[in-house]
Design a binder for these strands. Sequence first.
DNA 1: TTTTTATAATCAAACGTTTGAATTACCTAC
DNA 2: GTAGGTAATTCAAACGTTTGATTATAAAAA
Lengths: 345, 345
Amino acid sequence: MKKKNATLTDIANELDIDVSTVSKALKNHPNISETTKKKVSKVARQLNYRPNAIATALVKGSSNLIGVMVPHTDESFFASAIRGIEEIAQQAGYNIVIFQSHDDQNTEIKNLETMYRARVDGIIASHAMYTSDFSHYQDVIDQDIPLILFDRFDNSLDSDVVAVDDYKGAYKAVTHLIEQGCKKIVHISGNMGVHIYDERLRGYKQALKDNDINFEEDLVFESDTSIEDGQQLTTKLWDRSVKPDAIFAASDNPALGALQVLKAKGVKIPDDVAIVGFSNEKFTSYVTPTITSVEQHSRRLGEIAAQIFIDRISKDRQENDNKLPQKVILTPELIVRESSQRKRK
Amino acid sequence: MKKKNATLTDIANELDIDVSTVSKALKNHPNISETTKKKVSKVARQLNYRPNAIATALVKGSSNLIGVMVPHTDESFFASAIRGIEEIAQQAGYNIVIFQSHDDQNTEIKNLETMYRARVDGIIASHAMYTSDFSHYQDVIDQDIPLILFDRFDNSLDSDVVAVDDYKGAYKAVTHLIEQGCKKIVHISGNMGVHIYDERLRGYKQALKDNDINFEEDLVFESDTSIEDGQQLTTKLWDRSVKPDAIFAASDNPALGALQVLKAKGVKIPDDVAIVGFSNEKFTSYVTPTITSVEQHSRRLGEIAAQIFIDRISKDRQENDNKLPQKVILTPELIVRESSQRKRK
DNA sequence: TTTTTATAATCAAACGTTTGAATTACCTAC
DNA sequence: GTAGGTAATTCAAACGTTTGATTATAAAAA
């Protein structure tokens, strides 16, 4: 049986004084005499008193909880983001409650409902992959619960946002490939309609355009961003008579899949085909050859998301109406590795 | 400004009835007439009423929160475990609050204190790497807060435990190497004194013994389980006149480090040297050659941990004293890959 | 008509804090 | 010796629920 925790009342009874005196003594209120404070802290220590955060939350109307929702906690991008969020939140005295959407909109809605009931002070979320109706997020905003969307977000929502500039990342990647002498660059995209993949495609197109390379529709492939899909696409692609000289994948997984297939075919990487992925997954620097990729600074993303939440909370408290949603867009970094670095420069 | 949430009182006022009636109506209490229930749910919907979990927690004396502490959320082992925990917890109506210890004992203690104050209903934790004094965990037990230690644990503690049998995993790995014809097997360990690494070392020794191979002290190396350490150790090792014919690393990182160095040296893997790692990190199946490793079923570990918590809670409620701590030890699985599979069999 | 029973609602206390207002006790000054 | 002031404490309401005890109402049984 769970032992009962000591309460302010217990301390008050012990000393035969009022609870409010005890409460104030413990928070060093000026109206309480030093003698009383001493006595109170002594008894508090004896009874192993620990303030009941739930009771405090009820009175203060704030739970000190941040709801954090990601598709899955074990995708390395999100795992790092959570790390960043936890560290900043903890410093500021907030605890984080984790929810997984499993990339499913209904689960997303259910989770938001749970957060409402838990009276979280704010929500940091990366929405489900195929979410297209954002009204449940609009509800969050309408209820004036601070909402910070990270990585994945929708422009129709007036929320805080912290994300990576996918467009720029892709632009950098493709420009790099062109600089390496590539002219026929395949793009393996993710699910079209998902903002981040649309942006990467846009960056791809723009880089081509800026370098006077014609955009060819049939060099772009949709994928589910799995290794297997990368393999299959590449296999099919190599049945064509005209081969590309580079692959830019919107995710590291298909980049790896492509690399594996090409290696097996004896295609020289990067000389015959250069490869660039996206996300800078750990394995990109372990495989042979190492894969050039775009670093998204996921931990930093999480830290900033948490920081924005904290800023917003304190602004809300000050009631000055400086509450324009904040959009922080990080510029991703291209990490050049063997898979795209042609020696002949 | 945060909008005020509708309360039971709001509904009661609207209908000019008592809050308790409203409360009971919403939970379908038999004493309330159907007519009233209808009216109440209607108004509840109109006002967008959502039960305040904090108030309920205060009355019920249970927060519906599980505190989860890991060294870092972005280590893939823990990230998966968290995934497992979240899924089971969520199903059972519990939310999980995440804490990181950063492998630091003081942070660990601080986090436990925060959990106490948050009145978590239970704690699932994997203790900090170098924690040797477990009194802060004993405190948890003494306060009758369900404590489930996973992966890393200490035998002096009478807590629930769910872990992988490191001894068996190592035993399997080394036996496999011997079966492949290896006789001089190096072991790259982690920090000695840490239970999991001690166990892996023990498994290594026993497998040697059971196969009549002498244990040689100078084939065992302590490492910080980083790739770099694996590289350095291997480099030094290859300066010796007599080379080993296998490396069993207690972690995948140094296994990878060793593999990289040996590949660079032109050493044939697995024919000259076979390599086995531990943890089955994703990258083990992506690198060339792919690395044999020991799968620890981390997500499953998390699921079981959460399940044990739930069982314990319900047992506590029944007050039947069937409360012996539960120890679940999973048998790890050896995933044989190229780095140790000699064709000549 | 009176008593019993069932039904449906209300009452009231409790959970553990917080906090402004009110009270008490004591000291100082005129 | 009383008004005024200060310092220290207590009072009381509030936060939003839950729940056993109690009461009110009406219908059924005596």
